[in-house]
Amino acid sequence: MPATLTADTVAGSRERTAARASVALGPATATLARQKILAAVRSGDAFFAFFSPVVFFLCFYVPLHRQFELGGADYAQFLTPIILLQAGLFTAITATETAGHDARAGVHERMMSLPIPRVAPFLGRMAWVLTRMLLALAGGLVIGYSLDFRFHGSIADTVVFMALVVVFGLALSMLTDAVGTLARNSVSIASILMIPQLILVMASTGLVPAGAFPDWAQPFVRNQPMSVFADTLRGLAAGTGPELTAALIWSVCLLAAGWAAIVSAGRAQVNR
């Protein structure tokens, strides 16, 4: 009898494993991504993703462009990269709230009981993050182009420009998705994240050159990630063949940290 029970248990385990894997990763991710995107459209988040770069662009451009352009520079060309990077920061903050909402609503537990790969819910959320970044990129470029921002480099420079913007937002969103998944109050966490977002944007070369800051602050301003990405994006837009090493290193490190955070959050959920 014990042997029979053991065999039945093993058979049942195999059946559950087979049932769990009965929906392939691609279709499961596509279905969950579609649900997230439709929910974002209904809630207005998709609208906000497109138009928020427009609003922030005008908020910075209107008061600063006259002073900046006295030196003969085009402020729209200078400003557009940081607006797109700021959109990545806001996307990451939104990802915290989305993951936290799913956790509070018991979505993770329900997903774990379905016959889909465990990584599918995360990939579904990241599909919306990717869509949101593309919407923000489109909004930022529309307002930038209307105020004389232009790509003067090659097609390859333009592609790398857009890829860096998307990777920046995606990597940060992976980190914040993990935080939101485990946090008891993701809304509060998202509010707290607004503070470093503001510091990183204001204390960067995104709005004004590093020389406009006090001497003691300039090393931080020049070397923090927002400045590194903004300067690289400006070089790509200008077609001047900028040094990509620092931006690529930051991209790889952020992606690696994001993936490690997601893996740790997934293991913590399983152990709950």
Rank of each mutant, 00 (worst) to 15 (best):
L5V: 10
T6K: 09
A7K: 11
D8E: 08
T9Q: 13
V10Y: 06
G12T: 12
E15L: 12
R16F: 09
A18G: 09
A18M: 05
R20D: 11
V23P: 03
T29I: 10
A30F: 01
L32S: 12
A33D: 08
R34Y: 08
A40Q: 07
V41W: 05
V41T: 13
S43K: 02
A46W: 02
F48R: 15
F51V: 15
F56M: 13
L58D: 03
V62L: 13
H65Q: 12
R66A: 13
Q67V: 10
L70K: 13
G72K: 05
A73S: 13
L85N: 06
L85W: 02
G88Q: 03
L89Q: 05
F90L: 15
T91R: 04
T94K: 09
A95E: 01
T98V: 13
A99Q: 04
H101S: 15
H101K: 14
R104W: 02
G106C: 06
E109Q: 15
E109C: 09
M111W: 09
S113C: 12
A120N: 06
P121Y: 04
P121S: 11
F122M: 14
L123C: 13
M126Y: 01
L130K: 10
L130F: 14
R132V: 10
R132I: 12
M133S: 15
G139W: 04
V142A: 15
L147C: 10
S154A: 10
S154K: 12
I155A: 14
T158M: 12
V159C: 08
V160I: 14
F161G: 13
L164Y: 01
V165H: 04
V166E: 09
V167M: 08
G169S: 07
L172Q: 03
S173E: 10
M174W: 04
V179E: 01
A183M: 02
N185T: 04
S188Y: 06
S188H: 02
S191N: 13
I192D: 04
I195N: 07
I195R: 05
L198G: 09
I199Y: 02
L200Y: 07
M202T: 11
T205F: 00
G206F: 03
L207R: 06
V208R: 09
F213L: 05
W216A: 15
V221Q: 06
V221C: 03
N223P: 01
M226I: 14
M226G: 10
S227H: 02
S227T: 03
A230Y: 00
D231E: 11
G235K: 06
A237Y: 03
A237W: 01
G239S: 09
G241R: 04
P242N: 02
T245L: 11
A246H: 05
A247L: 02
S251N: 10
V252K: 00
V252D: 01
L255C: 12
A256P: 03
G258T: 08
A260F: 02
A260N: 00
A261L: 05
I262C: 11
V263K: 09
S264E: 08
S264I: 10
G266V: 05
G266K: 04
G266I: 02
R267H: 14
A268W: 04
Q269P: 02
R272Y: 01
